[in-house]
Design a protein around this nucleic acid. Sequence first.
DNA 1: GTCTATAGTCGGATAGAC
DNA 2: GTCTATCCGACTATAGAC
Lengths: 226, 226
Amino acid sequence: MLPPAPLTSRGEQAKTQLVAAAMTLFGEKGLHGATTRDIAQLAEQNIAAIPYYFGSKDGLYLAVAHYIADYMLRALGPVFANIDGLLAPPVLEPERYRQSIHRIFIKLAELLSQSETLHLSQIISREQLSPTAAHAIIHQKAIAPMHRRIVKLVAGYTGCDPNATETLIHTHAMLGEVLSFRIARETVLLQTGWSSIGPEQITVIQQVLLQHIDWLLNGMRAANTR
Amino acid sequence: MLPPAPLTSRGEQAKTQLVAAAMTLFGEKGLHGATTRDIAQLAEQNIAAIPYYFGSKDGLYLAVAHYIADYMLRALGPVFANIDGLLAPPVLEPERYRQSIHRIFIKLAELLSQSETLHLSQIISREQLSPTAAHAIIHQKAIAPMHRRIVKLVAGYTGCDPNATETLIHTHAMLGEVLSFRIARETVLLQTGWSSIGPEQITVIQQVLLQHIDWLLNGMRAANTR
DNA sequence: GTCTATAGTCGGATAGAC
DNA sequence: GTCTATCCGACTATAGAC
């Protein structure tokens, strides 16, 4: 008997594996540090498959960027839907907004700590340091929508103007707290003596972050209703 | 008449200029993205001067790492001296520690916003993403000493245990707020619509950060003396 | 569509003149 | 010490067999 027809064609599978391998190596070594040879080898595909399916190494990199943006949207989609429900009129009591902010920060801390997303966040971070076309893709598809919603939630709880630059800066600083555990991961490990950031470590981090968010939100709220 | 003897020999000057050019290009494009040809051209030096003075491209990169660590120590030296004075017995009233924390955060925000330090912080950030030997140099010489002192100050103000991992995490999260304005600089620019982070922008950022630090410190203090 | 072989380019390091 | 010329290796992309 013939083996069952594969759910995805061989070509599709090759593309998928190349994108996965590319994300790993671009994440670890950066766009210039990773070579097409290594990517093809890790993906167990032919080197020539890269120009064939993606046009060029840069094309593969852009495909990775799209994958990252889509992954983030998939991961955050439910949270976004929930937030959009909250943000629709009528205006709710502040406590609802605070809970939603907690939810998204927990989700972010979780996402940023999972080992599956390590390479993803390394690529995003490098794009922030020297943006290419990939940055625009990820920013527009995923980062900006998230940022916008969080700013509105923060404004909803604190009573700040959601369009004021200052509200944006406050929100960005809060997000910085989560991000630092991914971006300055190496410093955290060296200072704490942890060998890795596992489930117990994530719990500690999440608790600290939620406390911080409450202190900050209440500080802003108090400053605003003074 | 002969021209006056140069204060630094020609060789020393070549080295200095190569390190400066290397910092710029390594910052902009990363270790693999920057080429020795481009570095030599920007430094207005011969390509062969790189292997001659630094052994190799990697040697030049390490020289840049040492330069960065020394630069940070020079910039933070006075602040460190001041902190060490505060931290020596006897124990002072908490307010003194809070002021010192303010001082170092203002200094950090300033440092991280100056255009001269842009490439410096890009290199440090990339080293955090994928650490090389350069990371160890910078961490040991500059980052760890700074971290240690800030943790002690935070402990001094809040009454937390300076050796507890949690205190470290709290401090790291606070530092993340400052760092995010450098590391996620691109997001800040896109979200605010700013074209660059100039003096007025730094002022806004510093004010927000100091507010946050006070809210966080007081939150920790209250939680600890409850 | 997939693979092998190879072309063409570029980057880092070196040899040797001055 | 400094510079030019060049080598060698590595990388991406392509041409063409299957």
